[in-house]
Amino acid sequence: MADKPLLKIENMSISFSSPDEPDIEAVRQVDLTLTPGKTLCLVGESGCGKSVTARAILRLLDKNAKIGSGRILFDEPGGARVDLAALKPDSTAMRAVRGNHISMIFQEPMSSLSPVHTIGDQIDEMMVIHEGLKPKQARERTVALLDQVGILGARERADAYPFQLSGGLRQRAMIAMALACTPNLLIADEPTTALDVTTQAQILDLLRQLQADYGMAMLFITHDLGVVAEIADEVAVMYLGDVVEQGSVYDVFAAPQHPYTQALMSSIPKMARKADRMRLAPIKGTVPSPKDRPQGCAFTSRCPYAFEPCSTVTPERTAVGANHHARCHLLTRAKAEVPA
């Protein structure tokens, strides 16, 4: 079935340990579902736990991080369902999934690619390890992939080192590497952040086309709501490790329910005539540190609508429409005030 989930994250919490301090919870009770052929965008300010959530799927967390609770259920090709959270990061089973069935485009390719190996050698290695191809076969596939992602002179570029390529070409090479084994799920961690707007548009078009060609699910991490509107099917908004709102891109953009989502939408610059120009509406304050997490709703200190329970009681997830929900006491109060 096309609508059958490929990966489900259920009630996942992630914490970081320190020799001198108690464990710090960076992600709390996250629930996400990824479906073949669909794109889920994970959005929020820096420090909200987006990249940590993505890296947990591939078990690429730092050594002092642990998944304290929850499951990451992945349907492998062939029908077997495996809980990735239960696998050891360096296990054979996890290595068989990583790069083969689930791939990741990292935020900064210059620091993710090896500076002492050519682009071609790094992509070849993926297919040699996971698909058992001979080196010559792998190189032909590599050249075809580099050509597919729009790198001119692909055969010559395969012999180039990362520092010999521009930022846009390095990002395309990273995409080619992620697609080397035709993954079922592609995780893209802010792949257009460091690129100019023209290259960014080209990369987004490329990802959409590749997703249509391969039918893969995609988890796209960004803080750019313009990119979200262009590429997402569903949106999950994170704040200080919590998913505070989730729904279809149309529902979330047309009728944001959580004050944080509303503030993000209000902070987007808008085109206007000179007479209608208005100052930007920034979100006051900053995201608190996870080690100083407030009680109750994490957004309380920055929320213009905060009232009594917000600072003491953690809000429950409230349905506001079909497949659209948010965590906010305002929604709970509004439902309680509706006459039976």
Rank of each mutant, 00 (worst) to 15 (best):
S266D: 15
Q200L: 11
L84F: 12
I14V: 15
A144P: 00
V128G: 02
V235K: 01
K50L: 09
A306I: 06
T118C: 05
R170G: 08
T312S: 15
G78A: 07
P77A: 06
A188P: 14
P22F: 11
A158G: 05
P315T: 02
M12Q: 05
A334F: 04
D196V: 03
L186E: 12
K63C: 07
L264H: 04
L186F: 11
Y161G: 09
G241P: 08
L186Q: 10
D292G: 12
E337Y: 05
R141F: 10
G153Y: 00
V252L: 04
A65L: 07
A85K: 04
L169V: 06
L331E: 06
R98E: 08
M265P: 07
P315L: 02
D62K: 08
M238V: 04
D124C: 10
F74Q: 02
S266N: 14
R327D: 13
T198D: 07
D3S: 15
K63F: 08
E21L: 11
T192A: 10
G153T: 00
K66A: 15
L60S: 10
E25Q: 11
K38G: 11
L210D: 10
T118H: 02
A54D: 13
A340H: 09
H258C: 05
N100K: 06
E190N: 12
R98C: 11
I14F: 06
A212W: 00
Q262D: 14
R172D: 07
S51Y: 10
R155T: 09
G296M: 05
Y305K: 11
M12G: 04
S13G: 08
S166C: 05
T222R: 03
L219Y: 10
